[in-house]
Amino acid sequence: TETRTFTDEREARRFEQEARDNGKDVQVRESNGKFEVRVK
């Protein structure tokens, strides 16, 4: 599991989409204006 934290939602979404395109299981959590993207 890899976790990346972004402050920019667009960057978080781009990373999320890229991971999904690669067939990964992705979860995005938002807290305090930060976006935590977990990739399995």
Rank of each mutant, 00 (worst) to 15 (best):
Q17K: 11
E16R: 01
D25R: 08
E18W: 15
R10E: 12
N22S: 13
A12V: 03
V26R: 00
N32A: 07
R29Y: 15
D8A: 04
E36Q: 07
T3S: 08
Q17A: 09
A12Q: 01
T1I: 12
K40G: 12
F35A: 00
N22K: 13
V28A: 03
E11A: 09
E9Q: 07
D8I: 04
N32C: 08
E18C: 13
Q27H: 10
E2K: 06
R13S: 05
A12G: 01
R38Y: 14
F15Q: 02
R10V: 12
V26T: 07
E30P: 06
T3Q: 06
T1K: 06
S31A: 12
R14M: 11
A12D: 01
T1G: 12
E18I: 11
S31L: 14
D25S: 10
N22C: 12
E9N: 03
V28G: 02
R20D: 01
V37P: 00
K40Q: 13
E18A: 10
D25Q: 11
E11D: 10
S31T: 13
R29M: 13
G23A: 04
V37W: 00
N22Q: 15
N22G: 09
T5F: 15
E2Y: 15
F6H: 01
G33S: 04
T1R: 07
E18H: 09
G33P: 01
S31G: 07
A12H: 00
F6S: 01
F6D: 03
R4M: 10
V39L: 06
K40I: 14
K34S: 09
N22M: 14
A19M: 15
Q17P: 00
K40E: 12
T1W: 15
K24T: 04
R20L: 10
Q27F: 14
D8F: 03
G23L: 03
R20F: 04
R38M: 14
G23T: 01
T5V: 14
T3L: 12
V26D: 00
D21M: 12
R29G: 06
N22I: 08
T3A: 06
R29N: 10
V39C: 08
E18N: 08
E30I: 13
D21L: 13
V37K: 00
R14W: 07
Q17L: 07
K24Y: 15
T3P: 04
E36L: 09
V26W: 02
D25L: 12
S31H: 14
D25K: 07
T7A: 10
A12S: 02
K24S: 09
R13A: 07
K40T: 15
V37N: 01
R29P: 00
G33I: 00
E11H: 05
E18P: 00
Q17H: 06
E36D: 04
D25E: 13
T7M: 10
E16F: 08
F35H: 03
F6G: 03
F6E: 02
Q17G: 05
R14N: 08
E11R: 03
E16V: 13
E9H: 06
F6T: 01
R38N: 10
N32E: 10
N22D: 10
R38W: 14
E36W: 08
E18R: 07
R13Q: 07
A12K: 01
E2T: 11
T3W: 14
E16C: 14
R10P: 06
F15C: 08
E11L: 07
S31Y: 15
Q27N: 10
A19V: 05
N22H: 10
G23V: 02
R38C: 14
R20S: 04
R13I: 06
K34T: 13
F6V: 01
E16I: 14
R38F: 14
A19Y: 04
T7D: 13
E2C: 15
G23W: 04
V26K: 00
S31R: 13
E2R: 06
V26I: 04
D25F: 12
S31F: 15
F15I: 03
A12F: 04
T3E: 06
V28Q: 02
R38H: 14
V28K: 02
K24A: 12
T5E: 09
E36M: 08
R4I: 11
R13G: 04
A12Y: 03
V39Y: 06
E36G: 00
G23P: 00
E16Y: 08
F35W: 15
